[in-house]
Design a protein around this nucleic acid. Structure first.
Length: 111
DNA sequence: CTTTTGACTGAGT
DNA sequence: AACTCAGCCAAAA
């Protein structure tokens, strides 16, 4: 639930939409930045989606660890304790990584 | 105010 | 497969 009185709530609408979609991703599923961007109606804004999650004022509510890049690879610039932490969280949700440390998108990507 | 940076992607080399 | 370039746009410097 988004509290519009929260001082951190300075988004300009678009961020809000991104958070709303990410929050809908169920446990055991992942999605990509581009996919989220497409769902907001602007497929070309994948970079902005990444920026939105970088700010991620709803880190407690938004499962940002379920977002991966288009290759099913975790973002190296993830700043939540490192990719190791993100990977651990995903494995606890039942998501398996292959030897390259990537996720099988055909199997886990949320649609 | 202008310029750079960045949790990205897709096409081209 | 690895690298470059272009496009997208909000925040930070």
């Amino acid at each position: 639930m988004i509290d519009r009185n929260d001082p951190k709530m300075k988004n300009s609408g678009y961020f809000e939409k991104v958070y709303e979609i990410v929050r809908l991703v169920p446990a055991g599923r992942v999605t990509t930045y581009g996919r989220i961007a497409a769902m907001t109606g602007y497929p070309a804004r994948s970079q902005v989606v990444g920026w939105a999650l970088h700010c991620n004022p709803y880190q407690g509510d938004v499962p940002c660890h379920r977002i991966v890049d288009r290759n099913g690879r975790l973002s190296e610039s993830y700043v939540f304790g490192g990719v190791g932490v993100q990977r651990d969280l995903l494995e606890k949700e039942g998501i398996c990584f292959n030897e390259e440390g990537r996720i099988d998108l055909d199997k886990y990507q949320w649609k």
